[in-house]
Simulated assay, not measured.
Amino acid sequence: MQLYQDYHLASANTLSLPSVAKQLVCLDHVDQLPELQPLMEAAARRWVLGGGSNMVLANYIDALVIKVQTKGIRILSETTDQVLIEAQAGENWHGFVQYCLAQGWLGLENLALIPGTVGAAPVQNIGAYGIEVDQLIEQVQVWDVAQAKMCVFNSAACQFSYRDSVFKRSLPGRYLITAVQFRLQKKSTWQPVMRYPDLSSHPDLQGEPTALAIFNAVVQIRQRKLPAPAVLPNAGSFFKNPIVSARQYEVLLQNYPTLVAYPYGEDQYKLAAGWLIEQAGWKGKQLGPVGMHKNQALVLVNYGGATSTEVRALVEMLKRDIKQKFDVLLEQEPIAVQ
């Protein structure tokens, strides 16, 4: 196991921000954890890095960065209706979704083309088109650095909520996710989830769509709406959809009849952050090397040479404008790594 000093991370984050880690080590197999433990204990600060797709990296990260690259997918149990599978944390998320679909393990198709790794999925509780990953997670296996041992978190212990989990809220580097278990459906019990208009109105999904058809439609929609990070660096959806009370929703609806929102639990609504941003005039707006994408107002992009300082400046200006116009506070979705 090699320990790198002053490691450049520009190619390891999808926003392509220039960043240098004080130290970096790659975890290729869980058997390396006992060897890695002393390094993690000695480090004053730690950060776990997967695909770097949901992070805003500072210019210099005064910490030990652990890049998780473990691979492997296996069946734990199987019935005629369901399958329980385990995927290692370093598996590419979209590749994992494709693999499951090819095996006839269904349920992940709405989460196609989300960048990142399997291990990062529960941290952020990723979601898209009516599905959040916690609906499919059985348990998460982690290495607890504080206790120097492997632990298992069932779904309840993960404390999942909208784009959040106990892993995101805990001290950075306390838990290193090593594997995630998913309970998926076979064709006999699978039910399509098509609540979002982009899917319900899609011409290829009329009648009784298959999971593969939904997967293909999601890929097509995301490719049309979202820039590929390899072409135009970005971190995907940059802001959470804000959740407001029913009363605040009614007030907003009176002032903005075209407001896009969805019921969320009891007496709450989830507002479309992209709609708010577009209405405030930020869609396609650019400040120096950073801006909000011309086709999807929710996506912050790096046009070339941007730093975390410039990203932060744009974010603060945009949030201030949204607060003044709608009295709604936007929350950044990507994690800021300092």
Rank of each mutant, 00 (worst) to 15 (best):
P197G: 07
Q69V: 02
D321H: 03
W190Q: 07
P209T: 10
A280T: 09
Y7S: 11
L84K: 10
Q296P: 00
D198V: 08
L298T: 01
L276Q: 07
W143G: 03
Q23H: 14
V251R: 13
I73L: 14
G95W: 09
S165L: 07
A246S: 10
Q139C: 14
A44S: 15
D267W: 10
G51D: 00
V251S: 14
Y129R: 02
V140T: 12
L276P: 02
S165N: 09
K187W: 10
G236Q: 05
P242L: 12
A120I: 04
M150E: 15
A102S: 15
L276I: 13
L252H: 11
R222V: 01
C158H: 04
T14L: 02
N234G: 00
L101V: 01
P192S: 09
Q191C: 10
A336W: 14
V301P: 01
L84N: 06
N154Y: 10
H202S: 06
L15W: 05
L276M: 12
R222A: 01
Q37I: 09
E250H: 13
Q37C: 10
Q82H: 15
A87W: 06
S11N: 13
N241I: 06
G130E: 05
A128I: 03
R183P: 11
L259Q: 03
G95Q: 12
R74I: 10
P172T: 04
W143F: 13
A246M: 05
A230L: 09
K67F: 12
E91C: 11
V30K: 08
Q185K: 11
G50A: 04
L171F: 14
Y303P: 00
A42Q: 14
A273Y: 00
E266D: 12
F160Q: 06
S161W: 13
P192I: 10
W275H: 02
I277W: 09
Q69F: 02
A44L: 15
Y249S: 05
C151I: 15
L276F: 10
Q181L: 06
P227Q: 05
Q82I: 08
